[in-house]
Design a protein around this nucleic acid. Sequence first.
DNA 1: ACTTGCCGCATTTTT
DNA 2: TGCGGCAAGT
Length: 716
Amino acid sequence: MATVQTTTLTDRKAIISGLNDEQRSAVETTEGPLLIVAGAGSGKTSVMTRRIAHLMNRGDDVDPWNILAITFTNRAAREMNERVEQLVGEAASDMWICTFHSMCVKILRREAERIGYQNNFSILDADDQVSTVKQSMLDLNYDLKKFDPAVVQWKISAAKNELLTPREWKRAGRKSLIDSVAATVYTEYQAKLVSSNAMDFDDLIFRTVDLFLTHPDVLKLYQQKFRYIHVDEYQDTNRAQYKLVRLLSDRHRNLCVVGDSDQAIYRWRGADISNIVNFERDYPEAVVIKLEQNYRSTGTILDAANAVIQNNSQRKDKRLWSAKGEGEKLAIYAALDQSDEAVYVIAKVQEHVANGGQFSDCTVLYRANAQSRAIEEAFLQAAMPYRIIGGMTFYDRREIKDVMAYLKALANPQDEISLLRICNVPKRGIGEGTIRRLLDFAHENELTLLEAMGRAQEAGLVGGAAETVQNFHTLIQGLHDMQEGMSVTDLLQQTLTRTGYRDMLETSHKEEDQNRLENIRELSTVTRSFDRRRRGALADFLAETSLLFDTDKETGKTDNAVRMMTMHASKGLEFPVVFMIGVEETLLPHARSLDTIEGVEEERNLCYVAITRAREKLHLTYCAERSLFGQCQLNDPSRFLSEIPPALTERSGADLQVQIRWGVGLSVRHPQFGVGVVTDLAGSGDDLELTITFSSRHGTKLVKPKLTRLRVIDGQ
DNA sequence: ACTTGCCGCATTTTT
DNA sequence: TGCGGCAAGT
């Protein structure tokens, strides 16, 4: 069966060329469980892809379809696919190199009937999830002010990540009020999903595990198929994903996981670090290989990263090193405020470009999306090309969601959630009351919402309302019936025209609606490319797009612009020049992570991830004064900054205030009281208190420099 | 049924 | 500071 090997790499030498000893041994240790502890930038993707090539090349009976490689992001999956293809050619297309979620969709599409679903099931996006939870809570007469649907949704998601059914969740342990509410809502929510023939992201994993547990024959099939299993970013797996991997690998036990617990930054999302920590306990025969040589960053950057991460407790000792040489020192800039911070970034980017660099070499990393605004404004003003990665994405846009909801409703007529979203968009006069009546009628008679709409009069609707609903039903039914044999692009066009959606935007005079039209046009280029690749299968198109984040597309572009993204979004990427902005207490570490040690340590991991993105030069900035949500804050520099050995850094900036020697006679400017002169000193350190005489209007005040933004006036 | 205005709130978010 | 959700008004 080894005839499929159209391998472009023919011998072992080529596969292992350029690898260090550890990497080579990771590539060649193919049998049994293997844990690769891969530090940042240690070439793990290279190791994974070559390992797969090696398996193909061994000359025994391993077939491409015996290979499974699971990643978390589409970007990682695509990258790995490309690189494997370069190594083994055509054979790559028979391997499963995909994300957890797309793997589960593939399996569930085949086996849906076995677990009470149809194979055209819908997939809810994050928004659908919250609105469905909300709907469930309304049905159960919960006060939405007392219990936040988003929190309830969060809890349900957490339960699913732990593979807990509503009943088990209810039973499990001590519960606060919101937990018991969530448990009740969970039941209702799940019933809604099932009757809509829909799954949320968490279900994709959960249901697959469920399928395997209840259908040993199916499990056996996949266990036999996947002889060699690889899991990337293993530190980010949650309980459900762990179970899934365990089940799949149970037969051959050729499980290779790659991860780095120092880069675990998704615990708040259910990622369970003990999965990687306990790997050796789960698989006593496991081989562990550490990759500590970093091929990305300068020695200085790595020293800083090592120094910071060392402050975390309970980590396995690991020390990244580089053969790249020392490189430049880290630049730490103390800004006065956000605009000063932005000006610094702009100046340094311009400097880099003036020295022959590209804008696209530079990336600005921040902790929270809200921070991007100040930088963005400054970039606009300075006419600096930039591109924001993440944040509001293409598929988050309302018009895209609306249109996708139409398509979802056409692919899966049971999809109540999508139908509810679009039945009155554009406005047709189908309001709250009408919907209520239809839903009640549907439930009483065990009909889907769409079916109920087809019997508007029976449902008790009268006159205009009945007619509108009936018309809507005819509209959807008509579109549904025509989809057979039609390309997704054509169906999209028909939908836009017949539903009046396009018309609604075209006749609008609002500028944002023109943008929306533009976005919809963009969507049809997406459908066209899908149609070119694969004909028909609307459900496949929908699954593909709902599992695909816009960020994935963006990073593929090579336009010459400064990138801006959150530190989370930067994981797995690398850039020659990195700016970490807002390296302040309450931002990094974030105020909401301060109450637990684990919280702070995860923030430190995030800091470590951000630092290790930089190849050549790293800038860290913080502001003495930051206005957030219109309020002025005085933040201390991040504790993580003080964990970096001073010898590795070069400080600059306005605020060297900590070192200012306060003395009588010094002239200062106070943000409220204006210019004044220090007339007395009391206390020391953080408690230092100055007596300052301002203009006669304000008189003499006691001021703590620690708490107030004072500027020393030069030339005095 | 739809529009307007006010209040409150505001991490990170691979899928 | 700016957006989204909700309640009162047309």
